Simulated scan of single mutants.
Amino acid sequence: MTDAIHHLIEQYGLIAVFLGCVAEGESAAILGGFFAHQHVFILWQAFLAAALGAFIGDTFFFTLGRSFADHPSVLRLKARPGFSHAYRLVSSHPNIFVLSNRYIYGMRLVGGIAAGFADITVTRFVILNAISSLVWAALFSTVGYVFGLGAERIVGQALARHERLLIALAIGLIVAILAWLVARSVARKERVKDARET
C-alpha cells in the first residue's frame, strides 16, 4: 500500500504541487519542499512547479476579471466577501497589492479578479506576478524542505519511507486546516466591515 502511494507521489507529485498552487496552495508548496527533502523529487523541480502554478493561477483570475467581467461566474466571485476591500487596495497601491496579495489567505482568488477590474496594465501585472510567484514559491518550498530536515533530526534516521509519507500528509492536512480557519476569520471580518460600510 505505502509503496503504491510512494510510486504515485513520484509519478504525479509535481503535477499535484502545480495544481495545488494554481489554487490557494501554500500547503502544496510546503509539501513539495518536504518531498524534495525526502528525495522523492528534486528541490528545484518542486520550486518550479509551485512558481508556475502560482503564476498561472493568478494570471488566470486576472484574465477572468479583465476579459470576462460580465460572466456569471465572475459576478459571483465579485460578490464574495473581500472583493471590495481588494479592489480598493489594488486601485490605490497596485504594485504592493500584486506583490503581496498571495500571502493573504482567502484573498488570492478575489484579489486576482479585482486586479483584472482595476486600471493596471497587463504587462505590469505579469511582471509583478512573476516576481511574487518566484519569491512565494522559494519561501514555501524552503519551509517544507527545512521542516523535512528538522523532522528527520527530531524523529531520527530510523523513519521508514512510508512513515515519512504519512508525516508529510499529516503536515499538509494541518496546514490546510489552519489556512481554512484563518480564511474563515478574515471572511467574517470582511463581512462585518462591508455591512458597516453599507
Rank of each mutant, 00 (worst) to 15 (best):
F68V: 04
S84L: 10
T63K: 01
V126K: 01
G106Y: 08
D58E: 09
L89C: 09
E24I: 06
F125W: 01
L52E: 02
H93P: 15
V90R: 11
G111C: 11
I9V: 12
A28D: 06
A49C: 04
L109A: 13
T63M: 09
L19D: 02
D58F: 09
V126G: 08
G57K: 00
N95V: 11
M107N: 02
A28K: 02
A28T: 05
D58N: 14
L75E: 15
F35A: 06
D70N: 13
T59P: 00
D119H: 14
H37D: 08
S84K: 12
H39Y: 13
A54L: 12
A86D: 08
D58P: 00
I30Q: 03
F83I: 06
A51E: 04
G25L: 07
G32A: 04
A118C: 13
F34P: 01
C21I: 02
T59W: 03
P72I: 05
I120K: 01
A51V: 09
Q45L: 10
F97S: 15
V122N: 00
R66G: 08
G111S: 14
G33Q: 05
H6Y: 13
G20C: 04
A50N: 05
G112H: 07
L77S: 09
E10P: 00
I113K: 07
L109D: 09
G53V: 05
I15Q: 08
V17A: 02
F35E: 01
S91L: 05
H6E: 10
T121M: 01
A54F: 05
A49H: 09
Y87S: 10
S67D: 11
Y103F: 15
R108T: 03
C21L: 04
F62Q: 00
A51T: 04
H6A: 09
Y87N: 08
A46H: 03
S73A: 14
L43C: 04
A49E: 09
T121H: 11
F41P: 15
R108V: 01
P72L: 06
D70C: 07
M107H: 04
R124I: 00
G32Q: 06
A86L: 08
L31H: 01
V98D: 03
G57C: 10
H93Q: 14
G111Q: 12
A46E: 03
I56L: 15
A46Q: 00
L43N: 02
S67N: 14
G20E: 03
H93G: 08
V22A: 01
F68C: 12
K78M: 13
G116W: 03
I96V: 13
R88T: 12
G82V: 07
M107K: 01
L99C: 14
G33C: 05
R76I: 09
A115N: 08
A50Q: 02
S100T: 15
V17D: 04
V74D: 15
A79C: 10
H85Y: 14
A86T: 07
L99A: 13
V110W: 13
F61T: 13
F125K: 00
A16P: 04
